[in-house]
């Protein structure tokens, strides 16, 4: 095994990488084969909860789930229509967190507890992500591109890794 200060790769790292890639591919295939599952269990609740939060903050937000079967919802904020796709809902973070957790050398119980804590946390973050985008759309529509493409995208990835590293700490403590 080479030291960690050089770009060396040991067998355990390669095994982890293989499992991570296999997990991402499997979840990607599952996502492509069963889009309805992800639409009903993920996109729809994220979109509904975000809209409720926006309405609770007195934002003029109306959600149309008529196109859910086509893979998107329409959120009207202050009469401007925004299309919520899976990309907007941070589904990548859900799949990546699941793959990272399952690929990591830990017991089944530890992995299960990681998923039980991490996935709801990322779900809540995704609701906040759409809510923040809705608020930006309401307050400063010119910033929506920056927030949608860059800020919230990186924030979601950062939060996902934050959650995963917290779980790594729990594995150590156990």
């Amino acid at each position: 095994m080479l030291g960690i200060d050089t770009p060396g790769i040991d067998r355990r790292s390669l095994r982890f990488l293989g499992l991570f890639v296999a997990g991402m591919v499997s979840l990607g295939v599952l996502f492509e084969c069963l889009p309805v599952l992800f639409q009903q269990l993920y996109m729809s609740p994220v979109a509904h909860l975000s809209t409720s939060l926006l309405q609770a903050m007195s934002v003029d937000a109306v959600l149309d789930t008529g196109h859910l079967g086509d893979g998107f919802c329409e959120l009207a904020v202050s009469r401007i229509l925004y299309r919520i796709t899976f990309d907007c809902t941070g589904i990548f973070a859900i799949l990546a967190f699941t793959s990272l957790t399952l690929a990591y050398p830990a017991t089944v119980r530890q992995r299960a507890s990681g998923l039980a804590v991490g996935l709801p946390a990322i779900f809540v973050f995704s609701v906040l992500r759409i809510t923040v985008l809705g608020l930006i759309a309401n307050l400063e529509p010119a910033w929506i591109e920056l927030f949608h493409v860059y800020v919230m995208e990186l924030a979601t990835l950062g939060f996902m890794l934050f959650t995963w590293m917290y779980w790594l700490g729990q594995v150590r403590r156990a």
């Binding site: 960690i4 770009p7 790769i9 040991d10 790292s13 990591y104 050398p105 590293m165 790594l168 150590r172």
Partner: peptide, 14 residues
């Protein structure tokens, strides 16, 4: 992840 795994394993004590 491949690069950081040895560091993360230390973090988790794996």
């Amino acid at each position: 992840a491949l690069a950081a795994l040895p560091l993360l394993r230390r973090l988790s004590g794996a």
